[in-house]
């Protein structure tokens, strides 16, 4: 295992060293590339003047707010559709008509309705996050052990308690898988909206660095965005394993 993880580091390290040597040897002058050492220095600089931290806060705020709203909406509809087959069939055409709209196409609508800022970004992120949660939680509710539902009926639980005490706990591992997927999407959509148009957060930071012809800072932002994406993913995978162990695996890959 340790030998394997050492081998995994060989390629990235070799690429970095080769790039550094090449950039130094040719005295690289470029608007799009910078040697790794300068990228690291730019990253430290951006940390020192707190600009990258403020941008991270703005991006994560929009991403998480959108994720929370989108998950709540998706979960509500997903559970409702999972419980009631009638409702699911009646809403099928409506859902299938709205779902394929690429989230980013809503950008101009959100722009004229809400203007620049957090609100329009949150709306677009929320729209993108609804679908994975809706579809996976609907499937999760449908696959609940039928005997559990019989118990609920025998106990004459009112609908609200049935959802709260039986359905959500039983479907939770798979709902968390959907949440993990949506969290990745939320970050991607937030950064994309910022790059496309919204003057806010990490996406705007990287665009600004590009326009200011600072390739070192631009690539530093790119690295940092990658680190955040990676850390978020690891965090959620660890949380999933801790909270649900193997239970969540049954929902993966479907």
């Amino acid at each position: 295992m340790r030998a394997n993880s050492a081998k995994a580091l060989v390629l990235p390290l070799a690429v970095l060293v080769a790039f550094e040597v090449w950039a130094r040897a040719t005295h690289l002058q470029s608007d799009s590339l910078a040697p790794p050492s300068e990228i690291v220095m730019a990253l430290f600089g951006a940390f020192a003047d707190l600009s990258i931290l403020a941008a991270t806060r703005d991006t994560l705020f929009s991403a998480f707010a959108g994720l929370a709203i989108g998950t709540a909406i998706g979960l509500a509809f997903g559970i409702a559709f999972g419980i009631s087959d009638t409702l699911d069939r009646l809403m099928e055409v409506t859902v299938e008509a709205i779902r394929p709209i690429p989230s980013i196409a809503l950008l101009p609508i959100a722009l004229i309705a809400l203007g620049f800022g957090h609100r329009m970004e949150i709306v677009i992120v929320a729209f993108a996050c609804v679908w994975p949660v809706l579809i996976l939680s609907r499937a999760a509710v449908r696959s609940i052990e039928p005997r559990l539902m019989e118990v609920a009926r025998a106990l004459r639980l009112p609908p609200a308690q049935r959802v709260w005490k039986i359905i959500i706990p039983a479907a939770l591992p798979r709902i968390f898988v959907a949440f993990r997927l949506s969290a990745g999407i939320a970050l991607i959509v937030a950064v994309t909206v910022e790059i496309a148009i919204n003057p806010l957060g990490l996406g705007a930071g990287i665009m600004l660095a590009q326009q200011a012809l600072r390739p070192d800072l631009m690539l530093a932002y790119l690295v940092w965005i990658g680190v955040i994406g990676y850390a978020l993913n690891i965090l959620l995978v660890v949380a999933q394993n801790r909270l649900f162990g193997r239970a969540a695996l049954s929902g993966d890959g479907q």
């Binding site: 799009s32 990745g184 970050l187 991607i188 950064v191 994309t192 790059i195 496309a196 990490l202 996406g203 990287i206 665009m207 660095a209 590009q210 631009m218 690539l219 932002y221 790119l222 965005i225 990658g226 994406g229 990676y230 978020l232 993913n233």
Partner: peptide, 12 residues
């Protein structure tokens, strides 16, 4: 590299 939001490559 997979979790990197690919749109971040646009400025580059």
């Amino acid at each position: 590299l997979r979790p990197l939001p690919v749109s971040a490559i646009i400025p580059v």
